[in-house]
Design a protein around this nucleic acid. Structure first.
Lengths: 335, 335
DNA sequence: ATGAAAGCGCTAACAG
DNA sequence: CTGTTAGCGCTTTCAT
């Protein structure tokens, strides 16, 4: 029943060689005569032997596992980023471990980090998209390679970035160029005080000498946008809205529709991320395409650099791209 | 620079006790006098000591890590299921490792499984939603606890199920009860020959003596539904469409709209899953709510049972719930 | 090129 | 209750 896994000693016995010899053919660390190598490989195949990563990590101190710490695993941007990291890691022979930290509550963060760091890890990638991510980042000991992935650059750390501020600025400028006097902004829960999307929006308004309306807040729940959309529709000064992500934009559009107004006829709405459903929405959503999977890949590369010490590039930034569709237009006469 | 992590020996030395005593306070396996316990805890805190999971797993043979094997990590159902497993696992003190197997290609599956099984694992959860999942499941050695999570029940294995066939049947019956003569079906890539959603749909049609139209296929890409929607719109015999998931339903609706027809006026469309955006769509989408996170939780529980041998329930099935919204209605005169 | 010996950090078994 | 003694499965000296 218990069919114990064969060990390296079993392989050595079967092949009639010593344990270190088996280890040598396994790791390729030293040369082994073709004859013995052949014997060993055959024994491995016959036994279905598989080396124990635990024992390896214990002695060699070069673990082949990285951990991803994230506040969420299922929302679009998070899931895609994780996918990007995983693919890049797998290509390099690394295994990926995931730890979710749902709140920034100190106890929870500590518990999660503890459980994770207990593993033999080559490095850690932190999705710094939200407060839990920021909190987790602060708890990681300095002797472990770390990379942060996020929308806002911060110093003192390896970091892969999607320059959200620049993209938000471009989007806001585009809206202004359509003839809107100002642009309202609905924010998703920010990772901390500064939020790239909000920063870029404000920067564009300031530069254009447009009024800066108060920021509206939504949760991560798409439906939280509905009430916001209704409120916006009730304000005749609102002709263009920039939402923190596409899901919220969809909620806002529904709220606007429920209030009897039309998009983009009465109000233009733009999102952020380019969720795969954005192009299917009616009207198709103007948004900013974020290459989250690419962010993940770049992040892993940076982490690998830190792990190997091969390359000391510590930053990788990319600018998301504006995607203009039909949910935005020149302002019409409201109502 | 290298600030080596403290070991249990460092703690023992600092606390002035033996190594096993430290181990005892760590694991709680045996009683330790309050005085020594106190000393040990203090030493642990001062040193910032953290036990090595690798060493633990090596000797205790009770690993605290489970692996999830999945064909994808970012699509809605997958991501939510993974989230459910992760949350349940974390609550029980388990760490989660993720391996993605993108194709059912034998080499790729083997490589992925090898890399995963190399780790000290308490058990494995396989998302059997697609061919890679099915292939991976077949490769896992019999001595490791395994649970499969999926939409179709299969014997000989611990399994958590969402009874998609029953739900699809109910949905199809509902559509028929509205007065549609038959219901067309757009399938997402099936995990193998039998697909619960398709099975349930066919069952309902047969039972009602309705014609069973040929199945249409879409990919996982939401936009692949557009062409299908157009084709459907071109066929005057089509008055109701059941899509394999909500994203495809959204694509199909767009195709129908592009063809100049209306939903549900000309054609009723229903989805599957209850993606958070389904209720925001216009018109809001009739669908079936799948509790993927719950599936993940139940799956983990089953896995835990297998690992501990505490309980030998090996199956857990739940029936998804029909959610009626505005995208379905009685058939009108087409055109 | 290969084997013997040592030891990674930890827990289990056994004395006391 | 607590310390001593043995390994877990592997890689790394160090001889030969």
């Amino acid at each position: 029943m218990k069919a114990k896994n064969p060990t390296i000693a079993d392989v050595a016995a079967r092949a009639g060689v010593s344990v270190p010899t088996v280890s040598r053919v396994l790791t390729g660390a030293a040369r082994v005569s073709p004859a013995k190598r052949e014997l060993v490989e055959q024994a491995i195949a016959e036994l279905g032997y598989r080396p124990s990563a635990a024992a390896r990590a214990l002695v060699s101190r070069r673990p082949q596992t990285i951990a991803i710490i994230a506040g969420n695993t299922s929302r679009y941007g998070y899931a895609e980023t994780i996918r990007g990291i995983e693919i890049a890691a797998r290509a390099e022979g690394y295994t990926v471990m995931i730890t979710v930290v749902e709140s920034a509550d100190e106890d929870e963060v500590d518990r999660a980090i503890e459980a994770t760091l207990t593993q033999p890890l080559a490095g850690v990638a932190v999705l710094k998209f939200d407060p839990p991510g920021v909190a987790a980042l602060g708890k990681i000991p300095g002797n472990l390679p770390v990379v942060a992935l996020s929308g806002v650059r911060e110093p003192n750390m390896s970091q892969a970035v999607l320059d959200e501020a620049a993209a938000a600025e471009e989007l806001t400028e585009y809206l202004l160029s359509l003839g809107h006097e100002t642009v309202h902004h609905v924010r998703v829960p920010p990772s901390r005080k500064v939020d790239g999307r909000t920063t870029g929006w404000r920067r564009a308004l300031r530069r254009a000498n447009a009024a800066v309306p108060p920021v509206l807040d939504a949760t991560w729940e798409p439906r939280s946008g509905i009430a916001v959309g209704r409120a916006l529709a009730a304000d005749p000064g609102v002709t263009a809205v920039f939402c923190g992500n596409d899901e919220i934009a969809m909620g806002v559009m529904r709220g606007i529709a429920e209030a009897g107004l039309r998009v983009p006829g009465d109000i233009s709405v733009a999102g952020f991320d380019d969720n795969p459903l954005a192009e299917l929405w009616s009207p198709p959503l103007t948004t900013v395409r974020q290459d989250f999977a690419g962010l993940g890949r770049r992040g892993f590369q940076l982490l690998l650099n830190a792990v190997n010490g091969t390359d000391d590039r510590r930053h990788s930034s990319e600018r998301p791209r504006l995607v203009i569709r039909a949910s935005t237009a020149a302002p019409g006469p409201r109502r």
